[in-house]
């Protein structure tokens, strides 16, 4: 019995790829100006840099604008059904562990209809990468409230404003035990590439939330945290080993005051640089990353970068390799009797 992988027996050098090698002949059909283009760019750059044969990539998606991505990637791809990409990815990875499996999903696909699969993918920690395109709206069905739409957001399904509190995708991922958790905006190609690259190399499940601007149904919803002018004051870049400083002059920092993250201007009110929290994505306590994931609702800046990156048990199925003899023994079980050609019965029991 063989595991059906087509890996060659002799060591083979991985060809040097360019990004073009990862583009299929189908032209992407996203709206002009959509953040998915930049994200697709980042993903394919990470593929090029992975040092893995192209045929070993499999991109699995659900339903939604972002989930069309597999058609545009010149790899193996599977555009599955709404919300269920993690389940297909899981089976594919278990059947064929040599593959580099990526899940492409959105806020509606991954967190609403697919919420259950999302949390179980996170808790099982398979070596699967998840890119969650969060535009806070249902795009492909033309503009309904999504689980990440803010309270009061006016949408086609909530013309008087959404009455549902939104979900923070990364807190859900962390609550479920995710081992690599990151966020990037669709406007920062370099950060996008770095983070996706780190995700690609992580051993275990990786979730990267990309804030996507939906130019048609939710334009400029992330404007204040993505445009060049305001971004320095509204966001903080997470860099391992470095203090959580932000602002155009990096003169404000996040400190803990009465057990709460608080913004302090360095030098003012006795706030010192050494009081500023040093970013540690390997903090074994997920509470720290959880705190970061909740930031952004008041005066606290929205963090970008890698929130958490830890090493935990990676999902692996039991996989023995039985032979024909062993299988026959299994079929027979422990309680057998035999009949010979003369019809004589004897117990085979030991």
């Amino acid at each position: 019995m063989s595991t059906p992988t087509n890996t060659e027996t002799s060591p083979k050098t991985v060809p040097t790829y360019s990004r073009k090698d990862f583009l299929s002949s189908t032209e992407p059909r996203w709206c002009a100006g959509c953040g998915t283009f930049a994200t697709f760019n980042g993903i394919t750059r990470a593929f090029v840099n992975a040092g893995i044969e192209r045929e070993k990539f499999a991109v699995v998606s659900g339903i939604g604008c972002s989930s069309r991505l597999p058609y545009y990637s010149n790899t193996y791809g599977f555009h599955t059904i709404h919300g269920r990409a993690p389940t297909v990815a899981m089976g594919l990875k278990m059947a064929n562990p040599d593959l580099n499996v990526w899940v492409i999903t959105g806020d509606g696909d991954g967190l609403s209809i697919g919420g259950n699969h999302f949390i179980h993918l996170m808790r099982r920690n398979p070596n699967i990468k998840v890119v969650l395109f969060n535009n806070q709206i249902y795009g492909l069905t033309k503009g309904q409230t999504s689980p990440t739409s803010p309270l009061g957001a006016k949408t086609k399904s909530a013309p008087y404003g959404s009455v549902d509190r939104p979900m923070h995708p990364l807190t859900v991922a962390l609550g479920a035990g995710a081992t690599f958790v990151a966020r990037v905006p669709d406007t920062d190609n370099e950060l996008m590439y770095q983070v996706l690259n780190a995700a690609s190399k992580h051993e275990g499940v990786a979730i990267v939330e990309v804030l996507i601007n939906c130019v048609i149904f939710n334009d400029k919803v992330f404007e204040s945290i993505t445009n060049k002018e305001t971004r320095p004051d509204t966001t903080v870049l997470l860099e391992a080993g470095k203090p959580l400083l932000f602002g155009a002059n990096k003169d404000r920092g996040i400190i803990m005051k009465n057990d709460r993250p608080t913004v302090a201007k360095i030098g003012e009110g006795g706030a010192r640089l050494e009081d500023v929290i040093i970013h540690d994505p390997q903090n074994p306590n997920s509470g720290y990353a959880f705190m970061l994931a909740e930031m952004g609702d008041s005066e606290l800046p929205v963090p970008y970068g890698i929130f958490r990156q830890i090493h935990e048990h990676v999902h692996k199925p039991h996989a023995g390799k039985g032979n024909k003899e062993g299988l026959l023994k299994t079929l027979r079980g422990s309680n057998t009797w035999s009949v010979d050609n003369s019809g004589k019965i004897s117990s085979l029991e030991k």
Partner: peptide, 28 residues
């Protein structure tokens, strides 16, 4: 019998068949 079968106890019925379809795509 892990020597002869990979069994995935999924989070729900849908994930049960979804994982099987993924495995079929993967050649199982």
């Amino acid at each position: 019998y892990p020597d002869f079968a990979t069994v995935f106890q999924a989070e729900d019925e849908i994930a049960g068949i979804g994982s099987a379809i993924g495995a079929a795509f993967g050649g199982a």
